[in-house]
Design a protein around this nucleic acid. Structure first.
Length: 103
DNA sequence: GAATTGACCAGCT
DNA sequence: AAGCTGGCCAATT
């Protein structure tokens, strides 16, 4: 069981998300150079080869709604709230959205 | 190797 | 404002 280049990129970027912040699948995809690969990003995270170094729960949808999560969306919401992310209904405050650096 | 699916996104009506 | 359509990427059947 090994990782693809694509997977590696995704993992690395997601691992960069600081505590208390969130990033959109599309933003991650953009950060790795494939802005249309949001779905593939989700799939890669769903496999989640290294749950320790990959805070998958910090990745949300582009519209700032929760998105899916292995184990339940409500769990994800609680985890994020624990990390200091403020939710407004089902959406995250835009203040907590993490922006990746562009080279 | 084609067709289907899945933790998505943007645009149009 | 809300719903539908097409598109794009990688993995699985």
């Amino acid at each position: 069981m090994s990782l693809s280049e694509f997977d590696r990129r995704v993992l690395e970027k997601v691992a960069q998300i600081p505590r208390g912040k969130v990033a959109a699948y599309g933003e991650v995809a953009r950060a790795i150079g494939k802005k249309k690969a949001a779905r593939a990003v989700g799939n890669a995270l769903a496999k989640n080869p290294y749950p320790i170094i990959i805070p998958c729960h910090r990745v949300v949808k582009a519209n700032l709604s929760l998105g899916e999560y292995s184990g339940g969306a409500d769990k994800k919401k609680k985890l994020l709230e624990k990390e200091g992310v403020i939710f407004i209904g089902k959406t995250v405050r835009h203040e907590h959205v993490f922006k990746f650096y562009r080279s």
